[in-house]
Design a protein around this nucleic acid. Sequence first.
DNA 1: GTCGCCAATTTATTATGATAAATTTTGCCC
DNA 2: GGGCAAAATTTATCATAATAAATTGGCGAC
Lengths: 269, 269
Amino acid sequence: MSAVFTRLDKSGADSKSRRAVPNRPSVVSEAIKIMMTDKGMMPGDRLPQEPDLIRAFSASKGTIREALKMLETQGLIQTRTGPGGGAFITDIPTDHANALMSNYFFFKNLSIGDIYEIRQVLEPELAAELTKHLGEKEFAVLESTMVAYDHPPATIKEEQRQRIAELEFHERLAEFSANPLLAFMCGFLVSLLKDLAVCRRIYRNPNPELRERGYSYQGQLIEAMRAGDPEAARSIMKAHMVAARRLMAKQEAIVNRGFLSLNGKKRGA
Amino acid sequence: MSAVFTRLDKSGADSKSRRAVPNRPSVVSEAIKIMMTDKGMMPGDRLPQEPDLIRAFSASKGTIREALKMLETQGLIQTRTGPGGGAFITDIPTDHANALMSNYFFFKNLSIGDIYEIRQVLEPELAAELTKHLGEKEFAVLESTMVAYDHPPATIKEEQRQRIAELEFHERLAEFSANPLLAFMCGFLVSLLKDLAVCRRIYRNPNPELRERGYSYQGQLIEAMRAGDPEAARSIMKAHMVAARRLMAKQEAIVNRGFLSLNGKKRGA
DNA sequence: GTCGCCAATTTATTATGATAAATTTTGCCC
DNA sequence: GGGCAAAATTTATCATAATAAATTGGCGAC
């Protein structure tokens, strides 16, 4: 197997002819990646322990630690202490990947319009794709999410909770996708909107129309998916997105978000 | 400004009630992120130097170094040695973000169909969006990319170069987008296909139909964009994607990719 | 015999200090 | 003034030691 991880250290295309001399931790972390792929290691497998790595790569403890920290930051490993402990290969948590991506967009000044331009085409595709393989178990999960906003909110706090729950409906949809790319992208877009909802106060003003129409659309969507009609699901979702986009456009133009934390926690504003 | 970076350390939702006790480097790196946002620092600005950080956070040299290594791995900073050196805030390079994402999908077994399912909806949207704001300068860039494959390939090597150039056409398109999300997602999908082309040998067999139809579609696309007709551009791109998807589907089912390197270099197979 | 607690071992984590490498700045000489 | 060389500054690496965390295994009580 010639599979290799993607290298992440300093770019080789610098201003001067400063050749890319990756520092030692980077070299070691890349070597560990190669070791992982060459041995065909899978999530759950354990890497050699620190002293062994020190010997294997002839590097100091500090260097090995920095290399492991790089892999940990990339989400590739997690470390545990105690007997039998060490660095374990992990399937990168989606939250972690979301956080990484979110950082990338920090200086890009995303607007709500940018987000909805993509959602408007991805979510309908997702709806159509899900129709092929969703079962009653999944529909039950979706419907249980919807009960949170099947009624007008009594308080401003409930209003906020309902907005989040509405977004979680879409998060669930994404998780159910058989296409990992579609799942991640749709989930990421929702996570952008959720952070928005928490960190900023876009969803502050009451917006009964958004809730009502959202609930109605989602009901129709489940119906269409139950009926096994992908094109109906697609067009319902499309209408849902177009409507949501229009309603959201009034709220705020620029999304001034913050960096997301790599451990999944959110920081209130 | 209350903007905050996304945290990336160990998850708080563990099997046991093991409360999320992030280790010191994680805490410090988060604190540095907060410092960055609180001070409204921008790419190019320099962080305090190691000794100052050691004092500021009352942590050891090793801890600070690991924290900085985390930020570097996330693409948030780069460090330089020498006088006036230190850690500098960087706009995360797209290559870096691609590599990070690519790692996420390592264990997900993406298929070509997965990639094209998304391209089929995103690329048309991109085409329509570009029509609004592309000028002659951009068209010239696109056309100069196309000359690489305006003729049948003479050798197997040229065949491969042409495939890559064809993908670079789409890469350019993505770069021109005014929507950073659209730009990244389309660029990422192409980078997946490019890695495919290099690391695996999907594009090995000659496929004259793919080149010819691709060239023709792209010519029509530029024409439509020049004419300022977004819907024409959209439908041309859609047809292009549908055709490419069909042709690619025959090639290989599963994309057995490797981890990508964080410094933008590729590793041949 | 089983459950729960305590101690010992293994491991990561943090800390400190010293040396090396790299780069920029400065100053000198031509 | 231009170019080369030495010096100063800063990160990078290494080495060593002490501390904290977590699991295992054994011991005792029930």
